[in-house]
Design a protein around this nucleic acid. Sequence first.
DNA 1: ACAAAAGTGTTCGGGTTACACCCATGG
DNA 2: CCATGGGTGTAACCCGAACACTTTTGT
Lengths: 226, 226
Amino acid sequence: MTIQNIKVAVDAVVFGYKDKVLNILLIKRDIEPFKNSWALPGGLVLENESLEDAVERELREETNVTVDYLEQLYSFGQPERDPRNRVISITYFGLVKPEHHKIKADTDANDVAWFDINKLPELAFDHMSILEMAKKRLRNKLTYEPIGFDLLADKFLFSDLEKLYTTILDKQIDRRNFRKKILSFGILEELQEKVSEGRGRPANLFKFNQKQYFKLKKEGFLFDIK
Amino acid sequence: MTIQNIKVAVDAVVFGYKDKVLNILLIKRDIEPFKNSWALPGGLVLENESLEDAVERELREETNVTVDYLEQLYSFGQPERDPRNRVISITYFGLVKPEHHKIKADTDANDVAWFDINKLPELAFDHMSILEMAKKRLRNKLTYEPIGFDLLADKFLFSDLEKLYTTILDKQIDRRNFRKKILSFGILEELQEKVSEGRGRPANLFKFNQKQYFKLKKEGFLFDIK
DNA sequence: ACAAAAGTGTTCGGGTTACACCCATGG
DNA sequence: CCATGGGTGTAACCCGAACACTTTTGT
């Protein structure tokens, strides 16, 4: 039996939502293999850091983005997934609020970018299948945990929330039932601020009350949007 | 930056269900660290095998068990989780039908055993938290995928299925509603065999029709037991 | 006054829940 | 004939789905 020599990397699928479009954060590789291809941000784990620390460090170094939500996605370990050495990748799933969409300074911003999820380039390695899994996780999780709020600004309109759901779940939602249901959860704070989005009646701003959600969750409440 | 030297292991939480009790498969370690402690089966991944292959190999070597269901659980990578070197563990979640409960030949069976989930010894490393996560996964998944059948014999009684659910979910179920609901799914085959379990009226045997389930699933059917 | 988006209430139906008695067998 | 577990139907209730008009603002 030979000595094991497998490298451990982390990669992150980071979603953002801006201008009614779901985006994903990519970097352009500047070394082989897949030089000049777009890829998920990530890299090798350092000897003494946790996996989460590694993801956050790589995101900071490569993109300057800090995520608002992060969870482990899946570990990919096919022997041939990296053409050179054996590298297993522990992948993470991240969400970023619009407030934190700013990526690296414009000077070298050409190697980091937000891509519309529907206009993606080819991706390096097996990153496309990682992304596919992340999309599934996002769609799924959106229905049973209030993670959508980590893609919206702190203060948001109900129509934003609704549009987020229809965009990501790719199906129509009855506005009245949706609002009724979400409000009945009692996890939103209705602010006394109105915003007029160009034309039409000005809309109320809302805020997600995370404390309240955790409290209700502990009591057995289940967030659930079909 | 030093060269990365992190070892990659796989570990498996394998559940069995026998005599109305949920069991888990453990091995007794024969080397340090944690020599003579009980631990999850697992070990280092070989250079050229996939993660799944590694789990299945370790299970075969250490326990002689082949699982009927296997999926990735989570990856644990805290730097201090192994007191010696840095080892990250990619953990798997497995289920075994009673037909396959046989473990290694009795000669060395003292280092492999099924443990009642409610009468566990101390476990090595962070294996107890891995197990906790696996229990959650089991409980959860039982409600939205028909994995319970991978813990039952091919032919089973309705009361077995019901008991499995009440045991693992730790709550009562109305027998009539449960039966009505599961039968309405149309994924069980009612066999024309009856079994008399000691006293009482003989009960009918059923079989899970996996093909039918996959077909229905493709058409949008959702398995769902509260 | 018109266009655009926000806000709101009621009805209907299907599915889940609650619930109790008879049946077939072994001892 | 008694104990044990197996098998079955109905009524009440609740929640989700469907559905349209009024309000507020900008132009």
